[in-house]
């Protein structure tokens, strides 16, 4: 097994990304389409929530991705700061745009779902508030990338921001929990008891769970495909600007 650090070589990464990308894309499209169609057309309505449960197939995977993408950016930022692999930080940059869209989707679908269920578009519930803060973090991170011309400076600064931001994001999560107890139900999808059906309280039943699982996998695959694509784009851009700089010199 080759070392993972081999993929830190941009050329090698580009090649692998180009080879893998079509497969991941097709797989993502198939899983996502199956999951969403299954969820949208072939699941029953919840007896309390009516057809609004169908929103879960987008809301939950998007929310899950929003958090995990930030975690992935944290790891790749650390790798950049420690080992100075350009691919790593470019992957973080590519992932951030996906993350901001995922956060936005989670917020929008949540608001649309909350309207009939809680009778309001928006409440200052801990989870909603945390996501709003996360959205601000993503915006700040992307804005910082855009604002700085020198690519290495931008990479360093955004990486430090990502790390400091992660600490503050966790702090905010606790602060917000402390500040308001909220309407949201607790984690009900990934709780072990909920999946095996041993706990009866607010579990997501299997009828809803399998298409949801498929949607989650689909979102992850879509994210992987997008990150490969966007990272390769960034690598191409870097190489172009390097070539242009050499042209101007000669």
């Amino acid at each position: 097994m080759a070392s993972i650090w081999e993929y830190a070589n941009p050329v090698k990464f580009s090649k692998t990304a180009s080879a893998v990308l079509p497969w991941v894309t097709v797989l993502a499209a198939v899983t996502l389409a199956t999951g969403l169609v299954w969820g949208f057309f072939f699941t029953p309505d919840d007896f309390r929530q009516g057809s609004t449960v169908k929103i879960i197939y987008i809301h939950v995977p998007a929310a899950m991705m929003a958090i995990n993408i930030w975690a992935m950016m944290l790891v790749t930022s650390l790798i950049w700061l420690i080992r100075r692999h350009h691919v790593s930080v470019l992957a973080a940059k590519g992932a951030a745009s996906v993350g901001v869209v995922m956060t936005l989707i989670a917020l929008i679908t949540g608001a649309v779902w909350g309207q009939p269920m809680w009778g309001t578009w928006w409440v200052w519930d801990p989870r909603l508030t945390s996501f709003l803060i996360l959205f601000l973090f993503y915006l700040g991170y992307l804005a910082l990338w855009e604002a700085i011309d020198d690519p290495d400076t931008a990479a360093d600064l955004t990486s430090v921001l990502c790390i400091v931001g992660s600490v503050f994001a966790i702090l905010s999560r606790y602060a917000v929990n402390f500040w308001n107890q909220g309407l949201h139900q607790g984690a009900s999808v990934m709780r072990a008891g909920a999946v095996t059906g041993t706990d009866t309280e607010e579990k997501v039943s299997n009828v809803f769970f399998y298409p949801l699982l498929l949607c989650m996998i689909g979102f992850v695959l879509l994210f992987v495909a997008l990150v490969f694509l966007r990272t390769r784009t960034e690598i191409h851009k870097r190489r172009t600007s390097a070539l242009l700089a050499r042209e101007r010199l000669s």
Binding site: L36, F40, D45, G50, S51, T52, K54, I55, I58, H59, A62, S97, V98, V101, L104, I105, I108, T109, V112, W113, Q115, P116, L222, L226, L229, R230, R232, T233, H236
Partner: peptide
């Protein structure tokens, strides 16, 4: 979809539009 049709369709519609925009923007940039 019953009485919540508008909400469900809005949620799906908005999400799909956002994801399509993201994917198309990524492809175009690439």
């Amino acid at each position: 979809l019953g009485k919540y049709a508008a909400e469900v369709l809005t949620a799906y519609g908005a999400s799909i539009v956002l994801m399509t925009v993201l994917v198309l923007a990524s492809i175009r940039a690439a």
